Simulated scan of single mutants.
Amino acid sequence: MRVGLVCPYSFDSPGGVQNHVLGLADFLTAAGHDPYVLAPGECSPAAAAQLDPARFTSAGATVPVPYNGSIARVNFGPLSAARVQRWLLRGDFDLVHIHEPITPSISVLTLWASDVPVVATFHTATPRSRSMQLARSALRPAIEKIDAGIAVSEAARRVVVQHLGRDALVVPNGFFFDDFARPEPAGPWRGGEHPRLSFLGRLDEPRKGLDVLLEALPELLFRIPTLEVVVAGQGGRTLPAGCRSVGAVSDVDRVDLLTTSDVFVAPHTARESFGIVLLEAMAAGAPVVASDLPAFVDLLQSGRQHGPPLGVTFRTGDPAALADAVATVLAPADGETRRATAIRARQASRRYDWSVVGAEILRVYETVRAAAQPALRTAAPTAARRRMTGRHDESA
């Protein structure tokens, strides 16, 4: 299958949607398919390490826009629309998979322009999204072109149902489990002689919740004086005594950090649709403490039918509750419980490996293509139909 993957956000800055698109392209290539990616900006060195640059097309320079509690680097307008049209024509795709299809970006431009089957993945979990509310009426003709909708979590699915009036199949984000397979560290604690707490996220983005962790820090250090707190992520931020900043980390350093963490804290405050960073911590064997956002609760409760939760949640935005949860996880008397939970969580995280998630997405592709075949046989000869029938009418 020739698949066109559309990412609305630039690969110049790391992000969940970008990582998902890169991982999916990697899986599809390994599975014998032919994926090509369209995104704004450039294919960064980190992206090029995972995606053959020959499979990448830039939709042009980006503009930073506040979106979903963050800064999204997107592009839009007549020049972008022309680039989208050229990419679709040259790509001759069997199917186009658009991520965040109603974001004002090349995603919605591709949705308008595509004349082949369309799969769309919704990543956003913002119940009061004004853009989603406006999209239902303003973009209805475009939305009706989506042959199959995917939501990365139940939280994201609920937003699709609420604002767009249609359903979506839940297929979670994927990751490469084996990247986090490291031997268990030796020593009394995973981080060495003292317990280590880690935080990973953009430091200057309020919804990532670093402020909640920092407010909890005095109580944490009072209750666990030997606690080592490591903060990783992009963004300029002055941290108080008791925190060690390691800045932005590479993929290798990210694994090292999680593998040597005795507790990983995700104090995010809003707009999280999945929680891939929780999965990475689980796969690395790090016990997880997370705010009780719906997407995080869904993820950590996914093993309840076989036992207790896969991590500990606390009331979102509550520093005291965060401190209590961390102290409980790190209590010496609970060492066996901590290790048993981490083992269960690591096993459960395998379900999100790309070998599983990618296969689910492929089944969606196959269903959509099968349903489109009768229409392709009777419709005007698009590029895809010309390839299927062997026609090469230059005037088409």
Rank of each mutant, 00 (worst) to 15 (best):
Y352G: 01
I106C: 12
C243M: 03
W189N: 04
I102A: 05
V288A: 07
H306K: 02
G149D: 04
Y67G: 03
R271T: 06
G174H: 01
A59G: 14
C7S: 12
P172T: 01
V329N: 03
P195N: 06
C243G: 09
S70D: 12
V368F: 11
C7L: 05
T389F: 11
V246T: 04
G242Y: 06
A49H: 03
V118H: 07
T226N: 15
L88C: 04
I343H: 13
L134S: 05
V229E: 00
D178S: 14
A380R: 14
L300C: 04
M132R: 03
P267N: 09
A113F: 08
E205P: 10
L300Q: 08
Q301L: 06
P35T: 03
V3H: 01
I106V: 14
G209H: 07
E228P: 05
P64L: 06
A48G: 09
V6M: 03
S13N: 05
A113N: 05
S261M: 06
R157L: 04
T382H: 01
V74G: 01
G233L: 02
V118Q: 05
L79I: 02
R130H: 11
N75W: 00
T110S: 13
P14C: 04
V326N: 10
N19A: 13
E42L: 05
T126I: 15
D393P: 03
M282G: 04
V265Y: 02
S80R: 04
R130S: 10
L38H: 04
D179S: 13
A151Y: 06
K145P: 04
A168I: 01
L227H: 01
P188E: 15
W112L: 09
A113T: 08
F180M: 01
G247A: 10
R350E: 14
D253R: 08
R128S: 15
L322Q: 07
P117A: 13
Q301M: 02
R130V: 14
R136C: 10
Q301A: 15
F11E: 00
A359S: 13
R387E: 05
A370S: 15
R377Y: 01
D253I: 10
G209I: 09
G233A: 09
D26G: 04
V84Y: 00
F296W: 13
E219T: 15
S245R: 12
F222M: 09
V17T: 07
E205M: 08
L164W: 09
D262C: 00
L88H: 02
G390N: 08
A327C: 15
A266T: 00
M388Y: 11
Y9I: 01
P40Y: 10
L197E: 02
R86L: 12
A331N: 11
L139H: 06
F176N: 05
P185I: 00
D12Y: 08
A380Q: 10
G317P: 05
L38M: 07
P127K: 10
F274A: 04
R55S: 12
I150W: 05
V119A: 12
E42G: 10
A82H: 08
S129W: 03
R386C: 13
F76R: 05
L109M: 09
S261N: 02
R391P: 03
I276W: 00
V329M: 08
L376V: 11
A61P: 15
L330S: 12
V356R: 14
A266N: 10
P287K: 06
V152P: 00
E366D: 15
S70H: 02
P240A: 09
P381E: 13
Y352W: 09
V96Q: 02
W112Q: 06
Q85T: 14
T269P: 07
A156P: 02
S105M: 10
A325E: 07
G275W: 04
